[in-house]
Amino acid sequence: MPLKEKLNAGAIRALWKRFSRWTPARLWRLAKIVAPLYALFATRERRVTRQNLRQAYPHLDESVRREMAATSILHSVALAFEVGFVWRGDPQSVADAVKRVEGFELFEEAQRAGRGVIVLAPHIGNWEMVNFWLSSRMTFTAMYDPPRIAALDGVIRHGRERMGATLVPTNARGVASLLKALNRAEAIGILPDQVPDWGSGKFADFFGHPAYTATLLPKLVARTNARVVVGTALRRCNQGGFTLHFIEADPRVYDADEAVAALGVNKSVERAIALAPTQYQWEYKRYKRTPGQLEEEPGWKQRRFYRMKKR
């Protein structure tokens, strides 16, 4: 492992350990101090955030979008601090940080009907809290892709599994594990707004623009009787703590046509974003793949990400 990577990992682990003893309200106050400095140097994140907001909210004044961009970056900084609290903090303190839960009856209804639940957890608020809270209450399985800094893998994996969650790889073996969990009427979690590899998605509108969207969800729905729910943990900012929202997914996620189902996924994410637009991670390049780009990447058929084996 390169020395620079080792030093970076050590510094990050030390910060997470320190932040594990802080309250969300205190971490939010720190983020408000650090975010303006971070935004000054994070030119790529600032540019992408503004571009995405311009596409999503073209009707707003530029000054309003710039303010939204600054707030969105602030929330991203807060998340970077909060994961130390979620992954390494006292479990009871983390549980107590959830001040309100809305929509949990969706899980109870699915349980009574003997159905598994697919939880779509977009990059909004603190999605790590969704994993923590659900895995402390039910059998929960989620996909896991190791971080770029390999030395952080153990901390992240332990943090996500410590309340009982099962992490599975982002490959065919992992998909098989998700299917088994759903067929046992358990809950699983997937990130619905990541850009998949070519051959693993369909283009579908996201805020009025085509976004390459993973088709893992419709594949899972087609082979199970699962219910689809959107889960978010929204930050209460100065008040401290989080409110968990579980809402019905757009009904199109159940469509047999994968393109229609992908549109349903994106509309479900839009519903979640509408709850708190500035808490969404707009710095992610959601539109980095475009229609017509496919033929420019030779060998894409061999790089399928979520290949499903026929029974």
Rank of each mutant, 00 (worst) to 15 (best):
N266A: 10
T71F: 03
V228K: 00
L191H: 09
L263N: 01
V83Q: 10
L60V: 11
R65P: 04
V269G: 12
G10P: 14
V130D: 01
T43D: 04
R47P: 00
K219L: 06
V48D: 03
A256R: 14
R115M: 05
I12A: 15
P146C: 07
K99F: 13
K310L: 13
W282H: 04
S268V: 11
A150C: 07
K267D: 15
P291S: 11
W87E: 13
R160T: 07
H123W: 01
Q281I: 02
P196W: 00
E297Q: 13
P24H: 06
G89I: 13
R13M: 14
E108W: 01
R236F: 04
E248R: 15
F242L: 10
W16D: 07
K32M: 09
I12G: 03
F203A: 01
R157F: 06
V155G: 00
A187I: 05
I12L: 12
A11S: 12
A172G: 08
A14V: 10
I33Y: 02
M308H: 07
P2K: 14
L152G: 07
R88P: 11
R46Q: 11
I124C: 01
A110Q: 03
Y144S: 06
N8V: 12
E296A: 13
G154F: 05
G125D: 00
D250H: 02
R307H: 09
A259Q: 15
I188H: 02
A262K: 03
F140K: 02
G10D: 12
R235F: 04
F132L: 01
A56F: 02
Q51Y: 05
A276R: 11
L7H: 04
V265I: 15
Y306N: 03
S136Q: 01
K180W: 09
Y38I: 13
V253L: 05
V253Q: 07
L234R: 00
A56T: 03
S63N: 14
D61E: 15
N126M: 02
A25L: 08
N171V: 14
A165N: 10
D153F: 03
S135W: 00
T23V: 05
P122Y: 01
I12R: 04
V230L: 04
K99Y: 08
M1H: 10
L3I: 14
I190D: 00
E62Q: 13
T71N: 12
D197W: 05
R50C: 03
V98F: 13
T215N: 06
V253P: 07
R162I: 12
R13E: 14
K4S: 15
W28Q: 00
A187M: 08
M143F: 03
V253K: 05
A25Y: 04
P36C: 06
N238V: 14
E82F: 06
T166Q: 12
E296D: 15
K4P: 04
Q302F: 09
P147Q: 06
A14D: 05
F41Q: 08
A69H: 06
F140N: 00
